[in-house]
Design a protein around this nucleic acid. Sequence first.
DNA 1: CTTGTAACCTGTCTGC
DNA 2: TGCAGACAGGTTACAA
Length: 270
Amino acid sequence: MPELPEVETTVRGLRGVLEGEILQAVEPRRADLRRPIPADLRQRMTGARVTGLSRRAKYGVIETDRGDALIFHLGMSGRWRIDPDEIGKHDHLLLTTETGRVLALNDPRRFGSLDLVRSDSLDAFAPFAALGPEPLGEGFTAPALARALESRVAPIKAMLLDQRIVAGLGNIYVCEALHMAGIAPWKPAGQVSRARLDRLVPAIRDVLAAAIEAGGSTLRDYARPDGELGYFFKQWRVYGREGQACGCGKPVLRRVDGGRSTFYCAKCQR
DNA sequence: CTTGTAACCTGTCTGC
DNA sequence: TGCAGACAGGTTACAA
């Protein structure tokens, strides 16, 4: 479940297990995900101490006292499992700490990625260099968004999914934010009024912040050593709710293009 | 440069 | 029960 809030929740959960710990074993279990896994990952990470964990857009960053940064992306189906009972065929990287905790990066579809770069050149890491502002950061404002969307004719939804415009949104939160702001998903981005952009920016912030809070409870359950399944609370207003009533009473609609679903309310979003 | 579509890969669910 | 088809949170190569 990897959009920005899920990656943020994941990083927070990993922090409790990894931060300050020495990696006793680092074991890649296949050569590639979406990209090749760095061949020297085991050698460079084994014996290193984890100094910190952070997030940029949908990427998680694990830094060590050797000046290396392990960057992971969860793709569509990636997740970290904490102290799993057994290792399965989709567990592609295993980390074992000196205290005996085990973390398994599980990703059945393998759309995720693993990269290893020097901490002092994180900004030069190509996928990072292309990213737009963090939606929860100070650089994401209505004027800045208006400038980025100026004269663009692609649908506003497509622009918000473009990580160069704003970094971290995915299909769920774009649908939610557009509904909260009352904007039709197919409106040409450059034609969205300034008044609506003024609503959109806080809508994006609010939905992400609320999701991070809700995701926290998910990961807490996830981290249980007994492997008990956690709850997954859905607070979505439109995503995954085709046919159900919007707050206004009209049914939530779903439209598919390019194999991607968009959920929206034809009355509330214009 | 901008835009839209196909492809990558596996698992799960639905309907016949 | 079997099986085909739709669908899933992302990114990117490629064509137009």
